[in-house]
């Protein structure tokens, strides 16, 4: 009995991490799918265009956000400190500015839903009809 309740408690602790996963979302008017490499290139200032040729507008969640960490772990392979160093190099060499920041998952959805060419990422549990999932990395 004790064992079972322990297992139950453990599953409660684990479940929020295993059930939810990060998904890449896009503006409903944008392309239906995108490859992980294309997403990486957009978030690392290597490319500025979506697969359909439109100019891309990537959005980030704030530093320290768990979904942001998961997204970058899977897609760009960089942590917050590495990203900060990378973008400071891009900014101060005049190569570009980091993606605009959305304050939260709902802010991210609102930005992506209302910005043509927008791309972002949220937890799959947060997805609704205002945006479309274009990649599950």
């Amino acid at each position: 009995m004790k064992k079972l309740s322990l297992l139950f408690a453990a599953s409660l602790l684990v479940s929020p991490f295993t059930l939810a996963e990060v998904v890449v979302i896009g503006n409903p008017a944008g392309p239906d799918s995108i490859s992980a490499n294309e997403v990486r290139d957009l978030y690392l200032n290597r490319s500025k265009a979506l697969p359909n040729g439109d100019s891309a507008k990537p959005f980030e969640l704030p530093e320290g956000n768990a979904t942001r960490a998961e997204f970058h772990d899977k897609v760009t392979g960089r942590n917050d400190a590495q990203l900060k160093a990378f973008w400071s190099q891009q900014v101060f060499t005049g190569r570009g500015q980091p993606p605009a920041e959305a304050g939260s998952a709902s802010g991210m959805k609102a930005q992506v839903a209302s910005t043509p060419g927008a791309i972002g990422y949220i937890d799959s549990a947060e997805v609704d009809s205002s945006v479309k999932v274009i990649l599950t990395p």
Partner: peptide, 9 residues
């Protein structure tokens, strides 16, 4: 050269 004085980079 571009980040000559940007020690952080």
């Amino acid at each position: 050269s571009d980040s000559l004085e940007v020690g952080y980079a």
